[in-house]
Design a protein around this nucleic acid. Structure first.
Lengths: 229, 229
DNA sequence: CGCGACAGGATTGTATACAATGTTGTCCCG
DNA sequence: CGGGACAACATTGTATACAATCCTGTCGCG
């Protein structure tokens, strides 16, 4: 059994991390089957470890576990997509407001670093990395607000958003988030809670409107429907 | 190996359910160690199954997994307690508002049933069951709002609240939630979203104020501190 | 008598073997 | 030639064996 690309993982944490990253960066497409043996071989661990990793990701809704059938990269339905962004709309603006009240210069620097990374990724044509940086930006704000519980919810929602974008993003709308993010940093730096709240709300609305969620609500993308027989 | 108190469990689901119920009803106190062999014997399954159940509960923050040390019923810190109720304050009022717009008579009946069950449990002196019914009431509202994603967050927060109440509830304040719940049902039945939002907000504030969270913020209840050496 | 090293036992972490289940290709029959 | 039963295979579900780690009680030394 090969040692794989990294050293000792603490009980599947590393495997889950790697898989989550791959999903986040759209290297693993929604619907992809994750064979336990295969994943295990790739990372040089036994199925036991792979299994715990898959379970964790399943709980985060990044993959779907189907009994006796295996693990698949999740395919959020349109309804689920809506719900995720509604949840974000409930959590993030208020969190950004809280963050504004306690943003330090160091925080501003960190946020700016994320934006820079994102720019660089876009320039390099690495859309996956750019998307991930964009997600980390949102997460960083939750962290600044010093609300671990809410931050964890947001982390999960951001991760799921990545899948949603993979499925429903309509190209014509370039999701050029840089401006929105930059404005947010400005508001935070000035400790303008009202403005941060407002900006975040608008930013999330922009995000949703860059998606194509026009199908009938709550229609799971089934094979029958996809092939329109 | 004994078959245990129930039939075929689908990969630890049943075990997790049972343990969660026990925690919810305060039959398992915070800090209790959950020995894998022991739990396995009780439910007639192997450690493999127990392990998956423990992992799931760990993700829900109902138990804490400490590497090489085992699983323990979680002991939310005061800080965590505050955060959980802040998250609920962010999610539940708006959810109750949404629910109000789509509450059907059948929903009202279901909610009333929860309240009745709660009353009955209180009358029977079964505080654990009463607490559980109270939690289910909140969950039912999220369900009525037809927002599965948010409902799941609320479910987790309600479960954690149960642990928090176990740790920090001060007896003098009888957490007599019946009135608040009854008023909420009334608002929902009348489809009064504004009032539902307001009532839920107040209800959650009452809940928090019935707790004793006066310690220094973010101070984990360590042994050193508990014994004041 | 107190304190630290050490060893035994208990418990968790990981891998693997076996059972159960689902999938798919093939063959036979209409 | 089409369709359904069946069998071989692949994959996941579960149990168990072994390794690694931690806790605890004991012993010896200062």
């Amino acid at each position: 059994m090969d040692d794989g690309p990294f050293m000792k993982s603490g009980s599947g944490d590393e495997v889950a991390e790697q898989l989550a990253l791959a999903i986040h960066e759209h290297r693993l497409a929604p619907g992809t089957k994750l064979n336990e043996d295969e994943v295990g071989e790739i990372y040089g661990v036994s199925r036991t470890i792979v299994r715990t990793a898959l379970q964790r990701l399943s709980h985060d809704r990044l993959i779907t576990l189907r009994r006796n059938r295996g693990a698949f990269v999740a395919q959020p339905t349109i309804r689920e997509a809506r719900e995720v962004f509604e949840a974000r709309a409930l959590l993030e603006p208020r969190t950004a407001r809280s963050a504004a009240e306690r943003t330090t210069p160091a925080d501003v620097a960190r946020l700016q670093a994320h934006i820079d990374e994102e720019h660089r990724a876009v320039a390099a044509g690495n859309a996956g990395l750019a998307l991930r940086q964009s997600g980390l930006f949102h997460l960083e704000i939750a962290r600044i607000a010093d609300q671990d519980t809410i931050a964890e919810f947001i982390a999960q929602l951001v991760a799921r958003s990545s899948l949603i974008i993979a499925l429903y993003w309509q190209r014509r709308n370039a999701l050029c988030e840089s401006h929105a993010h930059h404005a947010l940093v400005h508001a935070l730096a000035e400790r303008d809670g009202d403005r941060a709240d407002e900006l975040m709300k608008g930013h999330l609305l922009d995000l949703v409107s860059s998606l194509d969620l026009r199908h009938l609500p709550s229609a799971p993308r089934s094979l029958r429907e996809a092939l329109g027989a």
